[in-house]
Amino acid sequence: MDGSEQHEETAPPRARREGIGFMGRLRAYFLAGILVTAPIAITVYLASWFIELIDSRIRPLIPSAYNPENYLPFSIPGIGVVVMILFLTLIGAFAAGYVGRLVLRAGEGLVGRTPVVRGVYSAVKQIVETVLANKSKAFREVVLVEYPRKGLWSLGFISGTAHPEIQKVSGEAMVNVFIPCAPPTAGYLVFVPRREVTVLDMTVEEGLKMVLSAGIVTPPEKPMEEPERISA
């Protein structure tokens, strides 16, 4: 048997080899199309849903004389969002002035004398001010805690220092850690000793991506370093 006959016996049929390559390329192109279009499509869908939601609430409140859609033969998507942004900006400018501060102080005084409403208003105001304040450290650190039992680790976010009464009961420094569910429709607030909290070298955005994707999307790998523990 010469070399050419041996090559013909060992080599697979050319038609079959080309068929496998062609189907493989089609599959790769199909998956590439999904990877390209899915993020764009989902982003556009969520953006359009949010704009339509705001428009449906704000558009009926616009006076007919000031609604540009009454003078145009077509609808303007996003007009409700624009009106809401302008309205909030005007309120902020008014509240920053002397008269606005007086009105705001009088309104808060009235709310403060209402039994049930004052508790809700105070809690919501404190949450908003804490989250929006640049100096606030709430949800600035991604941490790892052993929860719900030893040997199982949960991803969480430090939301602040525990109340003195809680620290008095535990007898040591404690921090508030919010552990979101995956996907984050709810979560748990746990009080953990500082010495048992491990701060991760991970941004809050990366931590939220992990939670939103149920662990499918993970941050890029970084050089191995010793995990930092919060000192007591």
Rank of each mutant, 00 (worst) to 15 (best):
Q6D: 07
E9S: 07
P12Y: 03
A15Q: 15
R17P: 00
G19A: 15
F22K: 07
R25W: 06
L26I: 08
F30T: 14
G33A: 12
L35A: 12
V36Q: 00
P39V: 12
I40S: 09
T43D: 02
T43V: 09
V44R: 06
S48F: 06
S48Q: 05
W49M: 12
I51K: 02
E52S: 06
R57M: 11
S64R: 09
A65R: 08
P68C: 11
E69W: 04
E69P: 05
N70G: 07
N70M: 10
N70L: 10
P73E: 08
G80C: 04
V83I: 11
I85E: 02
I85C: 11
T89R: 04
L90H: 02
L90E: 06
A93K: 10
F94Q: 07
R101F: 01
R101V: 01
L102F: 11
L104K: 13
G107C: 10
E108I: 03
G109V: 02
V111S: 03
V111R: 03
G112S: 15
R113N: 14
G119F: 08
V120I: 13
S122M: 02
K125G: 12
E129R: 09
E129A: 07
V131T: 14
L132R: 08
N134V: 13
S136T: 14
F139R: 01
V143G: 01
E146G: 03
Y147M: 07
G151R: 13
W153V: 12
W153H: 12
I158A: 11
I158F: 01
S159C: 08
T161E: 07
A162D: 04
H163A: 14
H163W: 10
P164L: 13
I166V: 11
K168S: 09
S170C: 03
S170V: 06
G171A: 09
A173Y: 01
M174E: 10
V175S: 04
N176G: 02
V177I: 11
I179A: 02
P183E: 12
T185C: 04
Y188L: 14
L189S: 09
V190P: 00
V190L: 04
F191Q: 10
R194V: 10
E196T: 00
E196G: 00
V197Q: 06
T198Q: 08
L200K: 10
T203A: 06
V204E: 09
V204Y: 09
E205W: 05
E206Q: 15
G207R: 06
G207V: 05
S213A: 05
K222Y: 08
P223V: 11
E225D: 04
E226Y: 03
E226V: 14
P227G: 14
I230Y: 07
I230L: 14
A232K: 05
